[in-house]
């Protein structure tokens, strides 16, 4: 059953097989504190990747 915040999803449509974000997931997506932590984490991963590529 589709979550209320998503609305109706047509069966067998492209959207029918998708992962629907629930309340906590949705909250995390716009939570400044969590997104800042993720931003730092992604930048660390990118920095490691770039440093590894320098010969």
């Amino acid at each position: 059953m589709a979550e209320k915040h998503i609305g109706h999803i047509e069966p067998y449509s492209a959207q029918a097989g998708t992962m629907i974000p629930l309340g906590f997931q949705k909250f995390l997506r716009t939570c400044i504190i969590w997104q800042f932590i993720r931003f730092i984490a992604i930048n660390i991963r990118m920095t490691i990747l770039i440093l590894k590529s320098h010969h």
Binding site: H5, G7, Q15, G17, T18, M19, I20, P21, Q25, R29
Partner: peptide, 14 residues
């Protein structure tokens, strides 16, 4: 990506 699109009610053709 699909999860983001469906959260924001964006339909798609690919």
């Amino acid at each position: 990506a699909e999860s983001l699109y469906i959260e924001r009610k964006l339909d798609w053709v690919i």
